[in-house]
Design a protein around this nucleic acid. Sequence first.
DNA 1: AGAAACATACCATCTGGACGGTTTTTTGTC
DNA 2: GACAAAAAACCGTCCAGATGGTATGTTTCT
Lengths: 186, 186
Amino acid sequence: MSKAHQRRKQPEAVRQQVLEVAARLSLREGPARVTLEAVSQAAGVSKGGLLHHFPSKQALLDGMFDDLVGKFGQAIDEEMARHPAEAGRFTRAYLAVCFSPEHSGESDGWKTLVTELLAEPHLRARWRLWSERQAERHAATDGSVDAELVRFAVDGLWLSQLLDAPGPGPERQRALMDRLIALSRL
Amino acid sequence: MSKAHQRRKQPEAVRQQVLEVAARLSLREGPARVTLEAVSQAAGVSKGGLLHHFPSKQALLDGMFDDLVGKFGQAIDEEMARHPAEAGRFTRAYLAVCFSPEHSGESDGWKTLVTELLAEPHLRARWRLWSERQAERHAATDGSVDAELVRFAVDGLWLSQLLDAPGPGPERQRALMDRLIALSRL
DNA sequence: AGAAACATACCATCTGGACGGTTTTTTGTC
DNA sequence: GACAAAAAACCGTCCAGATGGTATGTTTCT
């Protein structure tokens, strides 16, 4: 495991690798398995090296959170940029980022967000901040009761997938999506 | 803390107390803080006493889960018994149990369920089982796309409360509920 | 008396992280 | 551009504390 010692140093790549590995670990095996040892091992870095990038475990978890929230927000913004500013645009982008095939890669990360939020109550304050800012930014186009309802439903559907619940079949999921999109336009 | 040693022995009460304390702890301070020490202390039992009721930590967590799922299902059944078997009855009971003031006491327990499920991936199989059975039992009255959508929205709203997200104000929440109930009737 | 319901003491393991060392990269200087 | 020096990016080890669990009492119920 002394690879990183010899290879060309690219700290940013290592940092990113660590964050991804930690997220995957947290999602698949539960937050309890996210130990410095396990993460460093899976990321191909020594524990000392890991602690160089993230001076404490708390810092690692916070780093994960910030990284994920950042990526999620960016994905939504990009998705929104592809559509005119009609009513419900934000809500539809929210839906697309959570379920469209193009974003399926990141959706695992998005799931990790909740896992973290539930495991680390102190992060909830930051989440609240982000959440409030979004609501405020898109109050004009997405402030309706139905839009909010749709976003809640998206969260619920997404949670059920996260819990390995018996999700709706593909065709039914399609029907659900269509219904949600329709509601977002009201 | 040698109270339990002297007081009249009522093992069932102690067991229940332990489960409640553990749930509260998991919800407020995160799953990581649910240690045998902390739980036993908060429940007024020694660690040995705790391990007498739950031979391992795994058993404690499983016990918590079973207890909560059981109570949740029972609350829904009771709520349903008070209404005729119309379309969407299960969905409305689901909603009522999650948000009506009468069930506000237990709602903390429901929240703990998700906390546990995300922290302990192995419980997801059991959850899936329960979930499938419910869907099957009420397919006739609550199988519509809209009913499922409403239940997802309930989960989402409930998750947002769990995360201390900026929930809707009381009047808006009322509006949301009305809308959800209306959708459950379609 | 015997089993169940506790308590107390103790142990093995794991985990976070502090520490000192080594190698690579960057920076400043001529 | 050369080259020393400082900083950054790592590695490997060790340790104190926490945690789950065991072993062995002691009291209370039946």
